[in-house]
Design a binder for these strands. Structure first.
Length: 758
DNA sequence: CTATCGCACTGTAGT
DNA sequence: AGTGCGATAG
């Protein structure tokens, strides 16, 4: 252990050795956070703490797995009993043991996002609401944020602020949808992802003895990526640590990039208030990047207001200046980047795997892919559809789920007529209606179908129930693999796919075989206590893209991914592409969310992935929904301290300055036929450049909305002129609704910094 | 019950 | 432009 500690700097060592009492580690980018965390746990174990008493919460399964491996390397098999995992996986496990206390079956299924959406769609239909007004995505995110703030359906319905919000948004029934949704999930014996945390809190609240049991068990609690936790996660950790008070949170407020899914940066900003005797360690030395990269990152993030004082510095070499590339189009941007990778690779003797191309949205990968393929540069794309999101996989999983839990409504809907067995929508709704009328479950109704729907349909339904009962028997008597195999065969899925001789069909068949292999591995894993289908389903429902194995031998590939996926990774050279206004920072974010501070943190995360070289690029035109659009450079390029930037003389491969190219194109009335340039709409009443600093009015402090009065005229650089129509200052959130003359109504949260009172 | 047509969407991500 | 889902017609 001493040997290990010798390699650490002073704050790192402090973080490792400070084991008793609350601790907050503010870990800047590239400051050796993972190392500190693993050493800290190893140190606890070396001190004689039982692994059984340590709980370590991470943000992804992958992070948990990697950390566990590292610790096992340090301390050996002592690490076996560590509880290490995501919030969801850890508390799903606890809920599985305690579910009955909340009225759930212990084999509850977990709804994924698609299941949730499908259920919501049914509910919105059944309530005869306008699905254009009640969009599934919007409704789901509203319900999700309510659950993340521990608001029950009834509390929602009794909350005047939420209700008036909904009314103003013309969606007064949202609370009722939430209530119906929660009831349906409960009846189906299912939890969605948010329920796993919500119900954990509920369990602890209703059963203090259970809470006490786990409080005494988890003597040491660690939370990684604390800046990305939401309110319910905050409550869980707070309650669990209430007795022993040994809680250690690690995070970096400058890398909080998940507000859009409910992460609450104030968790980390206000942590001090909850634990007065808190000890704070700041890891500020960056070991990853050159001075130029670190300075550039700092020069942008300093524009943010909400942050902890932190000063990231590095001892590393100065390094190259950051290259800024201007391209005429997204396709040319791709060509230049691919060409650059080709040249840099030879020049520095780097591998393909030393390069990453980062972008804001997945759609941007296309141009990059084409260019790389043209130069025969191998690449891999991280993200996109995961294995477990594929239709054929979800179908078989749905059969398994339904076999285990006959109340699982979404699984039922998926499999009842797939493969086709003559039970269509009308039959299904008749069954559902009968079940509801008689107060029995759908399953029971189907078991008695001859009584109310005798005839041909009844036979089909009985065949189906017999089939499922056979599966049930198989699950009880055989091991997971044999049972799954039987289900795949007898359900007819396997046959259906086998008969499809198209390329896609063959791929689907192979995917199914791969799923069966995965079940086989699971069933034969001797280290696992619970090797049933139920346990498999639970694990699989919490698995994602990043958790899947690479599987390929040749891993020397250029990595393409979104900035979000890049967090925690590092590459010798990084290209951040698409540095254009409205794309990065994203227009959508700017309309709905706090403001551009999160986008700025996203930029910070992107550039700090680079070790040696960093290249930024933007295009002047870009394809969007099949049409060519005109773009403007991102405001972030203006915020960068110019000292760190360098613009190569020749940026266009056609040896033509991009500006000339574009003006030539527009003079000709657009490029050749088939092109259809969508001109950017002229900026609203703001200065011509569209990038000039907007000076806030002197009487108006950003984020202080109390100065706004209904009826006031205001101006916003993005949305133009408008009128304040409503303010509510209830709770912590200050909100104002502004009716903009051209854009319509906007609810602004924190973006008041740019708002002028006229 | 199935096939086809038309419309809407097109955002980052983990569980 | 392309896809995927839902509604409607057959």
């Amino acid at each position: 252990m001493e040997k290990l500690l010798a390699g650490l700097n002073e704050p790192q060592r402090e973080a490792v050795l400070h084991t008793e009492g609350p601790l907050m580690i503010i870990a800047g980018a590239g400051s050796g956070k993972t190392r500190v965390l693993t050493f800290r746990i190893a140190h606890l174990l070396a001190k004689g703490v039982d692994a059984f008493n340590i709980l370590s919460l991470t943000f992804t399964n992958k992070a948990a797995r990697e950390m566990k491996e590292r610790i096992e390397k340090l301390v050996g098999t002592d690490a076996r009993n560590l509880w290490m995992g995501t919030f969801h996986s850890v508390f799903a496990r606890i809920l599985r043991a305690e579910a009955e206390k909340l009225g759930y079956p212990s084999n509850f299924s977990v709804y994924d996002t698609d299941d949730s959406k499908s259920l919501l769609r049914s509910i919105i239909n059944e309530m005869q609401l306008d699905d254009k007004l009640y969009k599934v995505n919007g409704v789901l995110s509203r319900i999700s944020s309510a659950k993340n703030r521990l608001i029950t359906p009834n509390e929602y319905l009794n909350n005047p602020i939420l209700m008036s919000d909904d009314e103003n948004a013309n969606r007064p029934k949202l609370g009722l949808i939430y209530k119906a949704y929660a009831e349906r999930c409960f009846k189906a014996g299912c939890m969605d992802f948010d329920d796993l945390l919500f119900n954990t809190c509920k369990l602890f609240h209703l059963h203090p003895d259970v809470l006490n049991k786990y409080q005494r068990r988890f003597k040491y609690i660690m939370v990684d990526e604390y800046q990305d936790t939401n309110y319910v996660q905050y409550m869980i950790t707070r309650q669990l640590s209430a007795i022993n008070n040994n809680i250690c949170v690690v995070g970096d407020d400058a890398q909080s990039i998940y507000a859009f899914r409910g992460a609450d940066i104030s968790n980390i900003l206000n942590f001090e208030k909850d634990y007065p005797d808190l000890y704070v360690v700041k890891l500020e030395q960056n070991y990853r990047s050159t001075k130029n990269i670190v300075h550039l990152a700092n020069s942008v993030i300093k524009h943010n207001q909400a942050q902890l004082r932190k000063d990231v510095w590095t001892d590393n070499e100065e390094g190259n200046l950051i290259e800024l590339i201007k391209a005429t189009s997204d396709n040319e941007e791709g060509r230049i980047v691919a060409q650059s990778i080709f040249e840099e690779k030879n020049q520095n003797h780097w591998k393909n795997a030393d390069f990453a191309i980062l972008y804001r949205t997945n759609a941007q990968s296309r141009a990059m892919e084409e260019a790389l393929r043209r130069l025969n540069i191998p690449y891999k794309i991280i993200g996109g559809l995961s294995f477990y999101q594929r239709k054929e996989i979800k179908d078989l999983i749905a059969y398994l789920r339904y076999t285990v839990n006959h109340n699982d409504e979404e699984a039922f809907k998926r499999i009842i007529n797939y493969p086709k067995r003559g039970i269509g929508d009308s039959t299904v709704s008749k069954i559902v209606v009968t079940a509801v009328d008689n107060g029995v479950s759908i399953w029971e109704a189907m078991m008695n179908i001859e009584r109310f729907m005798p005839g041909r349909v009844a036979n089909a339904v009985t065949e189906f129930t017999d089939l499922v009962r056979g599966f049930e028997l198989a699950v009880q008597t055989k091991d997971a693999y044999d049972a799954a195999n039987q289900i795949a065969k007898e359900s007819g899925i396997l046959k259906e796919l086998y008969e499809d001789k198209t390329v896609e069909g063959m791929a689907r068949y192979e995917n199914l075989q791969e799923l069966l292999n995965a079940i086989k591995e699971f069933a034969e894993d001797k280290e696992r206590e619970d090797r049933t289908i139920g346990a498999f389903l639970q694990e699989v429902s919490l698995l994602t893209t990043t958790d899947e194995k690479d599987g390929e031998e040749n891993n020397d590939k250029v990595t393409l991914m979104t900035i979000h996926m890049a967090k925690g990774l590092e590459f010798k050279q990084v290209y951040v592409v698409g540095m254009e206004e409205d794309l990065f920072p994203s227009q959508m974010m700017m309309q709905s969310r706090a403001d551009l501070e999160e986008e700025r943190r996203l930029f910070y995360v992107a550039v700090t992935r680079a070790e040696k070289k960093l290249t930024l690029s933007y295009a002047l035109t870009r394809y969007k929904y099949g049409r060519l659009h005109q773009c403007e450079p991102s405001r972030f390029l203006q915020e960068i301290d110019a000292r760190y930037l360098y613009v190569p003389k020749k940026t266009s491969q056609q040896d033509m300055m991009a500006d000339d190219y574009f003006s030539a194109m527009t003079k000709l009335g657009g490029p050749q036929s088939g092109f259809n340039i969508k001109r950017k709409e002229p900026p609203k009443p703001t200065p011509a450049a569209g990038m000039a600093e907007h000076v806030p009015s002197p009487n108006f402090k950003p984020s202080d909305t109390s100065l706004l009065k209904a009826g006031q005229r205001v101006e916003h650089p993005k949305f133009g002129f408008g009128e304040v129509v409503m303010i509510d200052t209830g709770g912590n959130e200050k909100k104002a609704k502004i009716m903009f003359d051209t854009v319509g109504e906007k609810t602004l949260l924190l973006s008041f910094a740019k708002l002028m009172i006229l």
